[in-house]
Every structure is written in structure tokens, then in C-alpha cells.
């Protein structure tokens, strides 16, 4: 009788751990999506910076603000794009760190689940013999 109760206990534990794991996996998926978005933006900004770098000093640069084009200094545009690249890079770094953290948590969770499964199996094997 005691082993049946223990089995139920273990199964409950397994369930909560599985839930935690799926939550972690969802977070990792979200992280991937956000990272993809930022990577695309970073690439676009780098292209713009390269393009701005090719221009002569007196070139006319306009910035689209809502539906209107506003004239902007080349130097100012350059600085803006640089700042944006910096921000996005920092954000990407932060996302990388959280992703690593999440993956570590995921791995330890998987291991814990495996252990619980093993215990359940050994309990069931003992019961089958008895």
C-alpha cells in the first residue's frame, strides 16, 4: 500500500516538473523570436550605416517621421543609427545571457524528470515482482 502512495506522489511530482519544463521551453521559444527580430533590425541598421558612410558631406538626408519626410543632418543621422545599433547589440547580449540561463534550467529540469521517471519505473518493477 505504501508503494502505491509513493508512486502517486512521484507521478504528481513528474507532472509539475513537466509543466515547469514546458513553461521553460515556451520562454526559450519567445526569446528566440525576440532575438530574431532584433537580429533583423541590427542587420538593417548596419546596412543603413554603410550606406550613410558612402555619402558625400553635403548629401541631403531625410528621415521618415510618420507620413512626412524631414530633412536631417548627415552627421545627426549617422549618430542616430550608431546609437540604435549600440542599443540593439546590448539588447541582443542581454537576450543571449537570459537564453543561456533558460537553457541551463531546461537541462537540469530534464535531468530531474529523468530521475523521477527512473524511480517510478523501479517502483513499478518492484510491484510487478511482488
Amino acid at each position: 500500500m505504501g508503494s502505491a502512495a509513493a508512486l502517486r506522489e512521484l507521478q504528481r511530482e513528474l507532472e509539475t516538473k513537466a509543466n515547469d519544463l514546458s513553461k521553460l521551453q515556451k520562454d526559450i521559444g519567445k526569446n528566440h523570436q525576440v532575438r530574431k527580430k532584433y537580429t533583423i533590425q541590427l542587420g538593417e541598421n548596419e546596412l543603413v550605416l554603410k550606406e550613410l558612410g558612402l555619402l558625400n558631406e553635403g548629401a541631403n538626408v531625410y528621415k521618415l517621421i510618420g507620413p512626412v519626410l524631414v530633412k536631417q543632418d548627415l552627421a545627426e543621422a549617422n549618430a542616430n543609427v550608431r546609437k540604435r545599433i549600440e542599443y540593439i547589440s546590448a539588447e541582443l547580449k542581454r537576450l543571449d545571457a537570459t537564453l543561456q540561463d533558460l537553457e541551463e534550467k531546461q537541462n537540469s529540469k530534464k535531468e530531474a524528470i529523468f530521475k523521477v521517471q527512473q524511480r517510478i519505473q523501479s517502483l513499478q518493477a518492484g510491484k510487478a515482482k511482488a
Binding site: Q41, Y62, V81
Partner: peptide, 9 residues
């Protein structure tokens, strides 16, 4: 040229 910037060429 992207990200809302336009250049006269």
C-alpha cells in the same frame, strides 16, 4: 535606404 531614412541621389 531602410529604417525610415531617405537619401537624395
Amino acid at each position: 535606404i531602410g529604417t525610415g531614412y531617405f537619401v537624395e541621389k
